[in-house]
Every structure is written in structure tokens, then in C-alpha cells.
Design a protein around this nucleic acid. Structure first.
Length: 569
RNA sequence: CGGAGUAUAGCUCAGCCUGGUAGAGCACUACGUUCGGGACGUAGGGGUCGCAGGUUCAAAUCCUGCUACUCCGACCA
């Protein structure tokens, strides 16, 4: 590609509304431009990267035996009524009507469509298993799009759906997809981890997420320091260890007029946060008789809302009581709640049951109890794992302790089971001629998100540093001064042809109006892995100047050796 | 959806408090000089000041409403 005929839309200034580095650099490098909130144009530089990611995904999916299909973005609501998923998806599902006033939606995912296709096309167990995938545009009307293409409303996803005669077959394909995902992210060159995950709204049993490790990630992941254990913090079991210490203090009621939060209590009364207990009031489930239930957590722990929602006594979706409801129920405000003399039932996080001599609200405004002890002062009712695992917790597999790191979710694989095939009646005949509902798996990769995630992991103060496999160009070919030194142009033309013939994607910066500094800065900003600088001096010496994107200093390479030199890199 | 903020040239922003001819830097066009790390000079082009009302002799500026966008929280590839 000649730079003079290519939209190299680089900008010097960091755009004002970009917060994360990948968003800033994608805008600065001229990869994307915003059209509206969560909607982006992909410019030539960006699209080149996107296509390279797609190619790797496609090659590995094909190699795994999956078959590529392409389904429409627009889907009839009829199918969503049939699966019963429309209400659960809510306003994130963008609904539209056609000119005949028939309801459609923009597909946020394609379980319904593929299941409909398969129920019409596959009738025998002999055809199974089959795995179909597509790389296609998805639309989710996110409440808060952010971070550029990292969380856009319209995005590119690779989604795959497998169909099976039984669970063993599903497990086999699931394992194959797990390995395929590892190969894909290895080839792209990302530092990633597969982690055990919650199955979320799609439903089903087994599930792993693939996370690219980056401080800007929106997910927290717990790793064991002594085993392979890795799980999303949403899912990671929080283990309480140790014995409860004996009571040393007397129970006493203390005036705490200015302590409405754990932080204030800790500061004003010099109590460690781990010896305080906070009390959250949430709606109870219908099965539990409705009303409200209190959740007890150690002051230094955080409620895990997913775990809470799964508890049979707690209503899902989780709903916190309003301040007014709390007052009516307890007669005190949210800053003064505690388990002692609490008129509603409570569920104590496991760690809370190990506390002794702890402080908590007295259910009287402006007062706390200090020196509370279980058994002596009140009985433990129900206990559960309600909190997020934190750094230093024992690993749930019993080996080592947990460290917490941030991750960007770029892939997710699920064993769906028969959730959709059952709802849509996707069955085949087995060897006994009996109709069997097909268990399904589904496997997603956020292709456009991978592009952003790769940047989050690979950049410096000059710009992007692409992994070689997905760089928009392999080589930047830069003459020092085309106008003054025509010999540089002649050599560039020759090398451009030679390298292109050897299979390299070359950006030949033949712009006459730009000075050297601009060209070097552009090549670095858009992250081209290899840079060649052609000078008159070098031509006389039979060399050119090479610099890898991560190199500190350039090295001279013989012009005649260039292709072999680059091939060895 | 709750809270906060922003909206002036393609981009980054000043001007608004205290109403009176719409500005800078970058980018763009032309010419000249320069050119091994985002050059310099001269001359240009480019704005219904987000939209709609109101107050006023006069509104980018004050008031009201709306819209869009961004950020912080609950959801997901």
C-alpha cells in the first residue's frame, strides 16, 4: 500500500472523550471514528486489523471441524417468543417493525435462529455432532456503551453453536472449542487466561471465559498461586478459614452519632474493618414468603450479587430495600443496622460467623453494639457464601491462595444443554428411531473487542505495538527524502515490489509533503512491527536501517539480505 | 435506569461570570524557505456558537424547555 493513496487518518491530539488507552490510540491511529454512541466506523487501518483477527479465528474454527454459515442481523420476534427469552433480554434487545407492522429485532446473539435452522435441516443422529459458526455484526442496546469498541452497541462477534446426540458428545466438542480458543489467542499473541465462569442470562451448565489480562479490564479474576485454578470473581467460592476466637469483650451499646458507614466507624473508634459487620436489606424470594431478608457481611468484604441472587431465600433479580422500606421495617436508618434485635431473618456470610467481639449497628439511629459475640449474644441462623473472594483468600481447590487480577472478556464458551433445543423442538431420531432433543453448546469471541484488548496489552508512549499476527501492515518502508534524493524512491519501488511478492504487507510511505519525523511518528503510532529507513548514504553503502517496533536502536541490514532478514524475524 | 458534567471551525479549546462586529493552536489550500524525529514565514478557505422558545435596543454570553454526548454506579463478547 502506498501511503499517498491510503487514508492514514492519524491525529496528534488525544481525543477528549476517550478514557482508556485502546480507545485513545484507535482514534489517534485512524482506526475508528464514532458515528453515534456505541457505533463506530472502521477506517482502513482498523479494518485491516479486524480482518486479520477474523482470519485467524476462521482458520482455527475451520480446522476444528466447524462449518461457517451467515445468519441475518434482523430476526423475527416470533422466534424469541418461542424461546421465551424476549422478556429476560429486556430493552437491550432492539425491537423494530417492518412495513407490514411485523415485529423484528436486531440480533444480539443467534441461538434462536441457528436452532430454527437446525431443526429444519438435521433429522438424524448420524449427522451429529455438527458445529456452525459465523463472524457477523451483533447489536445490543447497552445501557452504557463505553471505552470505544470495547463495549460498543454494534460489534463484530464470532458465534458458534454445536448440536449433539448426547452430553458426552457435547463435552467432547466443548473441550475441542476450549483448545481451539487457546490456539486462537495464542496465535494472536495475547496474554490471556481461561477461567471458570458464571453462565449468565444465556443459561446452561459448564462455562469458561477467556480473559485478556489488563488493568483496564471490567472483570475481576481470581487465580491460585499454586494451581491452575482460575475463576471469575463472580463465581469464585469465598472460603472462610480459621476458628472463631473466644469472646473477650462485654457486649455494650455505644453512641455513634457520626458513624453511618463502616469507614467512619473504623476511623472514629479504631476498630479493624474485619471486626465490623455490615447489614444489607434485600427483597426475599416468593418461595421464602416474600418480604425482606438481611445479609450480613464483614465490613471489609463486598457483596457478590450473583451469589446472592442464586440463594433460594433471596429474590432475583436482586433488589435492595429503599431507605423508606428499611425505616418502616426496622425503625432505624441504613447507617445503623445490625443482626442484634433485628425483626427480620438474616443470612450471614461464612466469614461473618468467624467474627468475635465485633461491632455492628444496633437498629437504633446513632447507636452501634460493640463486643458482639455469636452464641453468647445471638444465634447464627442461615449461613452462605455471599461475598466476593479477595486477594489472599484460600483457593477453593485447596491449593494455595488467591490473587486477583483484572481481565477483558474476549471469549466465552458454554454448555447450553437443551435450553433452546427443547423450547424450539429441535430433535433428531436416535438409533432406536426415538426423537431426542439435541443438547447444544455455544461459543463466542468478541472479534472487535479482541482488537481493543490487544492494544490494552501492547502499547507505549509512541502508540500501538501490534502483535505481528494482527498488525495492519508488517513493514513500514520509509524513504528519508523523496524529493531531494530520487535514488531513494527507486530503491523503495524495488523493495516494495520484492517484499510484497514475498508476502509482506508493506506500507510504502511515498508521501512527498510529509517530513521524516511525521512518517516515523505515524509508523510508530499505528504500530507497524518492522520499520525500514532508506537513505542515500545507506544506498552507497549497500545497507538500509532496520528498527523493530520494540527495539531501542536501529540496526543496519544489507539491502540484498532484506527479505531473508525479515523472514527470520 | 439513578447521579454528575459537557455542547463554540474537521480536532483540542478560549470567550460566557460583568450582554455590544466570533477567537487561538493544530489540520486544510497557495507560494516561498527548510527538511535524519510531529518545521517556519506570508496569504487564504472554513462557524445558523447543539435545538427551540423567552428576556433585551442588542444574546455564544442571562432565563426556560428539549436533544445529543461523556463520566461514575447496576448488565455483557
Amino acid at each position: 500500500m502506498r501511503a499517498s493513496r491510503f487514508l492514514l487518518a492519524t491525529v496528534k491530539e488525544t481525543p477528549a472523550d476517550a478514557v482508556v488507552i485502546s480507545h485513545q490510540l484507535m482514534l489517534r491511529a485512524g482506526m475508528i471514528r464514532k458515528l453515534a454512541s456505541g457505533l463506530y466506523n472502521w477506517l482502513p487501518v482498523g479494518l485491516r486489523v479486524l480482518r486479520k483477527v477474523e482470519r485467524i479465528v476462521r482458520e482455527e474454527m475451520d480446522a476444528s471441524g466447524a462449518q461457517e454459515v451467515l445468519m441475518p442481523v434482523v430476526q423475527p420476534m416470533e422466534l424469541w417468543d418461542e424461546s421465551g427469552r424476549a422478556p429476560a433480554y429486556g430493552p437491550e434487545l432492539l425491537r423494530i417493525t417492518d412495513r407490514h407492522n411485523n415485529p423484528f429485532c436486531l440480533g444480539p446473539t443467534h441461538e434462536e435462529v441457528i436452532t430454527d435452522l437446525v431443526r429444519n435441516e438435521i433429522h438424524s443422529y448420524k449427522q451429529l455432532p455438527m458445529n456452525f459458526y459465523q463472524i457477523q455484526t451483533k447489536f445490543r442496546d447497552e445501557t452504557r456503551p463505553r471505552f470505544g469498541v470495547m463495549r460498543a452497541r454494534e460489534f463484530i462477534m464470532k458465534d458458534a453453536y454445536s448440536f449433539h446426540i448426547n452430553m458426552e458428545s457435547l463435552q467432547k466438542t466443548y473441550d475441542e472449542m476450549y483448545r481451539t480458543y487457546c490456539r486462537i489467542f495464542d496465535r494472536i499473541g495475547l496474554d490471556y487466561r481461561p477461567v471458570a465462569a458464571d453462565t449468565g442470562s444465556i443459561g446452561g451448565s459448564g462455562s469458561h471465559e477467556f480473559h485478556v489480562l489488563a488493568d483496564s479490564g471490567e472483570d475481576a479474576i481470581a487465580f491460585s498461586n499454586q494451581s491452575d485454578y482460575a475463576a471469575n470473581v463472580e463465581l469464585a467460592e469465598a472460603i472462610a478459614v480459621g476458628e472463631r476466637a473466644g469472646a473477650k469483650e462485654e457486649l455494650r451499646l455505644v453512641d455513634t452519632p457520626n458513624a453511618k458507614t463502616i469507614a467512619e466507624l473504623v476511623e472514629q473508634f479504631d476498630i479493624p474493618a474485619s471486626q465490623t459487620v455490615k447489614t444489607l436489606i434485600v427483597a426475599a424470594s416468593e418461595d421464602f414468603g416474600g418480604g425482606f431478608v438481611a445479609l450480613l457481611l464483614r465490613g471489609d468484604h463486598e457483596l457478590n450479587e450473583i451469589k446472592a441472587e442464586k440463594h433460594p431465600a433471596i429474590a432475583g433479580p436482586l433488589r435492595f430495600a429503599t431507605e423508606e422500606e428499611i425505616r418502616n421495617l426496622i425503625g432505624a436508618g441504613p447507617g445503623s443496622l445490625g443482626p442484634l434485635n433485628l425483626p427480620i431473618p438474616f443470612i450471614a456470610d461464612q466469614a461473618v460467623t468467624l467474627c468475635s467481639d465485633f461491632a455492628s449497628g444496633a437498629n437504633i439511629d446513632g447507636k452501634h453494639y460493640f463486643g458482639i459475640n455469636w452464641e453468647r449474644d445471638l444465634a447464627i441462623e442461615v449461613t452462605a457464601d455471599l461475598r466476593n473472594a479477595i486477594e489472599g483468600d484460600p483457593s477453593p481447590d485447596g491449593k494455595g491462595s488467591l490473587t486477583i487480577r483484572r481481565g477483558i472478556e474476549v471469549g466465552h464458551i458454554f454448555q447450553l444443554g437443551t435450553k433452546y433445543s427443547q423450547a424450539l423442538g429441535a430433535k433428531v431420531l436416535d438409533e432406536n428411531g426415538k426423537a431426542v432433543v439435541m443438547p447444544m453448546g455455544c461459543y463466542g469471541i468478541g472479534v472487535s473487542r479482541v482488537v481493543a484488548a490487544a492494544i490494552e496489552q501492547n502499547y507505549d508512549d509512541r502508540g500501538i505495538i501490534w502483535p505481528a499476527s494482527i498488525a495492519p501492515f508488517d513493514v513500514a518502508l520509509i524513504p528519508l527524502n523523496l524529493k531531494k534524493n530520487p535514488r531513494e524512491g527507486e530503491l523503495c519501488e524495488r523493495l516494495y515490489a520484492e517484499l510484497t511478492a514475498a508476502g509482506f504487507d508493506v506500507l510504502y510511505d511515498d508521501r512527498e509533503k510529509e517530513r521524516l519525523g511525521v512518517k516515523l511518528a505515524d509508523a510508530e503510532l499505528i504500530g507497524i512491527p518492522h520499520r525500514l529507513l532508506i537513505t542515500e548514504k545507506g544506498i552507497d553503502a549497500g545497507t538500509l536501517e532496520y528498527k523493530g517496533r520494540r527495539d531501542a536502536d536501529p540496526t543496519d541490514v544489507a539491502i540484498t539480505e532484506l527479505t531473508t532478514f525479515l523472514q527470520s524475524r
